[in-house]
Every structure is written in C-alpha cells, then in structure tokens.
C-alpha cells in the first residue's frame, strides 16, 4: 500500500511540490472513502477539511424551494473539493455530494492553517495552487453563464 505522501505526490493538485512540504502536509492527511449519495459537505456547516478526489464524481449543489437540489458543477478524478476552510468564517457555501463511490484524501484544514501560518513559503505555494483552481472554476462558470449552446432569437439561417 502506498503512503499518503506518495498519493499526494501523484495527485495533480500537488504536482511539482517540494518533497519537504508534501511530508509536512501528509501529516494533516488521511484516506477517506465516501459512498454514493453521502454528503461530503453541507452548506453552512463548519468547513474543517478539504478533499483531493482520487476517483469518483462529486456534485456541488444548492437547493431551491420547490425544486430540490440544483447541481452547479461536478468534480472528478484529479479535482479538489473545498476551499471554505481557507477563509473565515470557515463554513461551507454549498453542498457537496458523492455521486458515485468517491476515493479521497481528506486534509485537515485546521492543521494546515497552522502550518501555513508558521511557514509562509508553504502558505504561498498552497495559496497559488488554490488560486489557479479558483480561476479555472470562475472561467468555466463564466462560460456556463454565456449559454453558448442556446438557440438564437433572430429568424435567420445558419450553419450548424
């Protein structure tokens, strides 16, 4: 069986990170499996952890009255789930649910916050990795907002 440090190394989120930091982070990490349908996070609950998805699909959801859960986005192998642990008040802003059986590495945010405060180099490295993911998700969300596949209003001909 692989060590947690080896699993962290393999995950795209930590690609190229210094071994020293990986070892440090591994101290805050454990393997965790979610069964299909299980909630990984619930809106407004304390966000003490974040997850590296090793395999499986996670949906980010919110619910509306009379409509039920609306899936905003799904995450899969190689993605990370959760950054609410980084910022006060450290509460989840959306629900996260396992759509399939999901193998994760669960990282303890409280532990990591302490390590980042002690070693700002580590903090900066980690923050850069999160910022890149946030940028990608923002970009993808903007693309979703454009409704690019929508039917045009005007009555003219087009090619497909």
């Amino acid at each position: 069986m692989k060590t947690i440090a080896a699993l962290l190394h393999e995950h795209p989120f930590f690609a190229g990170m210094k071994d020293e930091y990986i070892q440090l982070i591994a101290g805050c990490a454990v393997n965790h499996i979610f069964n299909q349908g299980e909630y990984i996070a619930k809106e407004s609950d304390a966000a003490d952890y974040f997850y590296l998805i090793r395999n499986g699909r996670v949906s980010i959801e919110t619910s509306q009255p009379n409509y039920g859960a609306v899936i905003l986005q799904t995450l899969q192998d190689g993605d990370i789930c959760g950054w609410s642990w980084l910022f006060p008040p450290h509460c989840w802003t959306f629900d996260a649910k396992a759509q399939t059986k999901v193998h994760t590495i669960k990282l303890d945010g409280r532990c990591l916050r302490g390590k980042c405060a002690d070693d700002t180099q580590l903090g900066f490295d980690l923050m850069q990795r999160f910022a890149r993911i946030m940028t990608e998700r923002l970009q993808a969300t903007r693309l979703q907002l454009l409704n690019i596949y929508g039917r045009p209003e005007n009555n003219k001909d087009q090619e497909i």
Binding site: P12, R57, S59, G68, V70, I71, L72, Q73, T74, Q76, D77, G78, D79, Q99, E136, R137, Q139, A140, T141, L143, Q144, N147, I148, Y149
Partner: peptide, 23 residues
C-alpha cells in the same frame, strides 16, 4: 460528457466542457 445545466435525473458531469480538459 458534460452539461451546463443539470436537469432532474442527470447523473453525469455538470460544468463547461472545457472543465473536463483541465484534469
């Protein structure tokens, strides 16, 4: 496959198709 909007019962990916490429 991925959809921009999940309709009830959709079990697949949700999000811009380009998000699938990032990983």
């Amino acid at each position: 496959t991925s959809v921009d909007m999940a309709t009830p019962g959709w079990q697949g990916n949700v999000g811009a198709v380009t998000s699938l490429l990032t990983t």
